[in-house]
Design a protein around this nucleic acid. Structure first.
Lengths: 348, 348
DNA sequence: CTGAAAGCGCTTACAG
DNA sequence: CTGAAAGCGCTTACAG
């Protein structure tokens, strides 16, 4: 032993399927079949191979397997952020969605390669070309249109992908059931006795989900015999600031209101603080409801009523739609179910 | 053309480095060198190869490259959750940290393979054995001790890894400068005139960071001539609920207090609501400060003062420490700098 | 049910 | 500076 030269090894020693084969007394191909669960191998052989693999602490080298099969067992997830935005300031809705996507992928035996992208220098979605993933899920802010343009163009190349939050209707998307959710929210306010319901929203082409929510609201108030009342949000601000400014505009209008529907929770939370600062008590003077079901809503004072999408279903639908696309199968579902979460902000 | 039989292809056509070589009129090895940026290839050749690659829309098959080199260019990131917890309810601190880790990895040319793990059935960190990653970063709740035990044991196998939030001191960890942060927070309260400062904390062995924060607090109040006052949090509850119960205990004690330092923001936010409900005005009747710098603190009413770690530095330090471990180099830094963020909750 | 052999698409000594 | 060749560690027809 003293005679052994300790040269540094260029490559760490690695147990391969050949080693397992030798240990189990079978061929390398049988090891591969046995560990892959091929039903053609006999139970006795499988057990012997499994024991040998365990003894040698063997794991399949996924790079070799992937090179051979052409499949990666991996989904890439790109989170589109606002340029220069702190990771801490990302909409919690997006993080929650990221979490459920990873969970759904994992449950289906897929790994998730996650990337946050904000600036043009940063955009890169060529995961399939590089064989890093079998497909791509893009989520994140609708507001970074340069990023969405990039992915729309890239999508032309025939890669497999699905998105959430795209401003473009023609892509493969999954969205909350915005129309239904807005109708639920509005009806909830009406049921609580509200007759002058303002809606803080945006109707521009990019924020598709906001337009859908406004439409659901407008339809519901109209059906109840009231006029829709849109308070337009300003572009290029944080959601919080958009909510604050909208309340300022609302108050400046001098018009009487007894309820507000904000098309997302982050805007609603900004509105809530602005209302408090202006001396408008929620819910006594005006009820307030948001949309998205982020956790901060529950922690607000008063706790904010909201429309909550089924996050788990959202993650599952995105993954299933992508896997269907990869398999070349149809997958029609596009809308994630939502539910009303009634909290103190709408209880008189 | 009409004669060509259209058999379905078992494998999609793929452009390889041989195709690029043919197009550029060089050998395949030269293509590999040119695209890898090997300085040995002549500028003229490199340009010809680059043009050919672009023309054919070629990308390197990473699986083949990784198999050959033994390096994956990928870092695995495991987020430890509480068992059964909704992805939406994950501490936003963890999500923020995840975001900066991914950003730091990306800036250093690494992909990130992300996985959320909560239950024993779910735990799996054998990324290096499977050649899916070059190393592992584990972050998440300290409260799931089964998970931390799993990773501590797995770590014995000689894999490369670094963690945040581990209850075990002997591992390779990065943490906030908890002692310094707590001292800053406490001094801030003292400077605002507080003399009876309660600290909502836990001293048990698992929540290392809480103990460190309590110590920083205790040292600072003692130096100012006051007695430390610990309000112990209860185990097994949500952070929000822990904050609420702690306030209940604080009030039940009947003891006079004019400031509260909660060892994390989530606990502080629960405490804030409980104080409001009990009619204790913040900051008029009592100042309140948290720790962690999560975004919800800024959105609370009143906005909550806090100690904010440098999230970007935290992500960078975790990644750099891991890469140093992989390269076999030393990396001594363990503490992320923190700063005081003074908001309304501590301004009389 | 099992084995021998081919080949996935690269990188990198080795020669020249 | 460039090329021919080996080999990374698997999976999967093909034979038996």
């Amino acid at each position: 032993m003293g005679e052994v030269t300790d040269k540094p090894k260029a490559r760490a020693f690695r147990v391969t399927s050949f080693d397992v084969a030798a240990e189990a007394g079978v061929s390398q191909s049988t090891v591969s079949r046995a560990l892959a669960g091929d039903p053609v191998v006999s139970e006795a052989t499988r057990a012997r191979v499994a024991a040998a693999a365990a003894k040698l602490n063997y794991s399949v080298d996924e790079n070799a397997a992937r090179l051979r099969t052409g499949r990666t067992g991996t989904i890439a997830v790109v989170v589109i952020c606002r340029a220069g935005e702190d990771r801490k300031d990302l909409n919690p809705f997006t993080y929650a969605l990221l979490g459920t996507i990873c969970a759904a992928a994992s449950a289906r035996g897929f790994e998730t390669l996650v990337s946050f992208q904000d600036s043009p220098a940063n955009l890169s979605g060529r995961y399939e070309e590089q064989r890093k993933a079998d497909g791509l899920i893009v989520i994140g802010t609708t507001q970074n249109s340069a990023a969405w343009d990039y992915y729309r163009d890239l999508g032309q190349s025939g890669m497999h992908w699905v998105c959430w939050g795209s401003p473009y209707d023609e892509l493969e998307w999954i969205r909350s059931d915005n129309h239904q959710g807005a109708a639920l929210a509005t009806q909830h306010l009406l049921d609580a006795g509200a007759t002058n319901i303002a809606c803080i929203a945006s109707l521009d082409g990019l924020q598709r989900q906001f337009k859908e929510r406004y439409d659901g609201y407008a339809e519901t108030v109209t059906a109840a015999g009231h006029e829709p009342w849109l308070v337009q949000i300003e572009d290029g601000l944080s959601r919080d600031e958009q909510g604050r400014r909208a309340v300022a505009a609302l108050l400046a209008s001098g018009r009487k209101f007894d309820a507000v529907f904000a098309v997302c929770d982050e805007i609603a939370l900004g509105a809530l603080r602005a209302l408090a600062e202006a001396g408008v008590r929620v819910p006594q003077d005006a009820a307030l409801i948001g949309f998205d079901g982020i956790r901060a809503s529950a922690q607000a004072m008063p706790p904010l009523s909201t429309i909550e999408p089924d996050f788990q279903a959202a993650g599952a639908m995105l993954v299933d739609k992508l896997l269907a696309a990869i398999a070349g199968e149809p997958h029609g579902t596009r809308r994630v179910p939502v539910r009303l979460v009634a909290r103190a902000s709408t209880q008189r």
